[in-house]
Amino acid sequence: MQLDDPLPSSFLDPARVRLTRVPDVPPVLTVDGQTYEDVRVRLAFPLSDERKYVAFFDADDAYIGMIIDVTALDAQSQQVVDDELRWRYFTPRIVRINRMWSKSDRSYLDVETDRGATTIAFKGIRDHIAEIAPGRIVITDDHGNRYEIRDVHHLDRRSRRLIRAVV
């Protein structure tokens, strides 16, 4: 069997990776002297590892490569990666559950998150609340927005009781 494409190298050497940016414009990536503009940054494990396994894609969304650990980059590049990740991944963290009720076939959660208070509405518990790791719960509302409980044990007693009644 013949291989048309050579195998892409698995991981980039963080010493040869640099990211720079000007405000409000996607960053510029330099790998081994080659420059890519308007780079997209994605996590390979967005739910289970937020600062590791970061993949870069060029302006046409073609894969460039991946670094294992962000902290191996220089400080400026690290900052850029962190900014980019914050830009791409928006998941408010629930810090408190005030009320939980259902009306007809919808369930509602009145919550406070690290990004402000809101009411989460969704239909059907099974498809919308998932414990992705012990103590870690992700809630998806009807629009597909995501909310997260980082660690159920860090919630107050009442919130914990409320959420434990459904998951």
């Binding site: 994605r42 996590l43 390979a44 494990f45 967005p46 739910l47 289970s48 396994y53 993949a55 894609f57 969304d61 894969y63 991946m66 992705i132």
Partner: peptide, 10 residues
């Protein structure tokens, strides 16, 4: 294609 999925490998 996996990395391009919203949740990647997760």
């Amino acid at each position: 294609f996996i990395v391009k999925l919203t949740d990647g490998y997760d």
